[in-house]
Design a protein around this nucleic acid. Sequence first.
DNA 1: TGAATAGTGTCTATCAGACAATATATT
DNA 2: AATATATTGTCTGATAGACACTATTCA
Lengths: 233, 233
Amino acid sequence: MSSAEVLASVDIVALRLTPESQRLQVLLHQRQRLPYKGQWALPGVIVNGSTADSNLDAAACRALAEKAKVYPRHLEQVGTEGNGSRDPRGWTLSTYYLALLDPAVVVEDPQIAFLDLQGVLDNEPPLPFDHRLLVERAYERLAAKAVYTNLPLYLAPERFTVLDALSAAQACLGQPVNNTSLRKRLERMKSEGWVQDTGEKNQPRLGRPQQLYRHTPQGNGAFMFDRSLLAGG
Amino acid sequence: MSSAEVLASVDIVALRLTPESQRLQVLLHQRQRLPYKGQWALPGVIVNGSTADSNLDAAACRALAEKAKVYPRHLEQVGTEGNGSRDPRGWTLSTYYLALLDPAVVVEDPQIAFLDLQGVLDNEPPLPFDHRLLVERAYERLAAKAVYTNLPLYLAPERFTVLDALSAAQACLGQPVNNTSLRKRLERMKSEGWVQDTGEKNQPRLGRPQQLYRHTPQGNGAFMFDRSLLAGG
DNA sequence: TGAATAGTGTCTATCAGACAATATATT
DNA sequence: AATATATTGTCTGATAGACACTATTCA
């Protein structure tokens, strides 16, 4: 029943905001091979299979580049699932990553699509393997980190307004976020060099123009706040 | 250079507090096989190799049970390292876990030892493979979570005093923790059922007796506080 | 001028943290 | 009584959050 080696793959849960910045979408790709040929699934590759990989993170980048020609703003490993039932081919491992994309990314490949995250979590459409579970875990990671880091900003446009940042945070958390609190967080990040005021403005259909900011991460990690955004429930 | 399958293992970074509750120690085991036979290394097993594993978590439990006959209070997956240079046998994957042990655990097996965590991080003794890196990552996870969860309590004795909880937190964070803040956290946990007052007391050599508490987790996750313990720097 | 939207200022509640005050034991 | 330790209470500071107020545009 068991052998010394197992089939190992890397799967990517790549998220972006819809153009209206209201909802999250998952990048899926239509499988070209068995099993589950033709179904929408997470982009992934076999680790160090027909293509050599220097390490797992490189394999993750390769998966996104090969399958979707997309380069993420943020990429982090979430976990590894391994058991004998997730893949009909036998005992397999999948290390899965959370990737956050620029909302401006375009994909013309018809085998690639962005589907509504909440739909996927509700099994619409159902994904093969345990991909729905992987999506859920990756989203949980994002939601947990959105409470006390700037992770949502990696989903906002290159130059963003306060409203863009607010929408991103709300999409990550799945609930309303206090406008004042978010502004204060942006202020603090500005004073620490993580956000810059571009000086430019964006004119909405009506009303006062919106200031445009730019996200300028100082280092690899995320900016950590020392309080939860959801303290008051 | 590459094949369809890779060697996958699970390694455990199991920590406990020293009897004086001042420092953390890592559980290591003396390797019985090549490579690195005779050296102190993390306990681990080949996933679904000569022994079948229903899933990765089960393999992690098996590693601890087989190698050290130890059962952790808390076990969580930290990450997976995979590359061609970490193991002389070729391209390998290791999924590594953080395990928190009761300080009362005893191990009589001479092939098992608890070595000082800080020493191991300083390469004393040097560990084979990339085990030092895995230890570092697991400890980073613990330190990060100690800031806003009750994770350190899983390292405290079954019935603990405020001082025990304080020592555990300090050992996890690697820096002093405010006594008042910790007491208030215990108060809150008590009001939410996560800590119980046993009514018993412990008499130190001198001075007022210490109240003894018991840690009673309500569910699988950790208790989350909505502020950092280290907000003031 | 009025509607719509953006941005600022003020106040409250909560909790980390410093520190003083009190309680309970041993010698 | 003196000392040591634990525990309680008081005060300050930072910041999330609610909300009122001001600013800037278009129709």
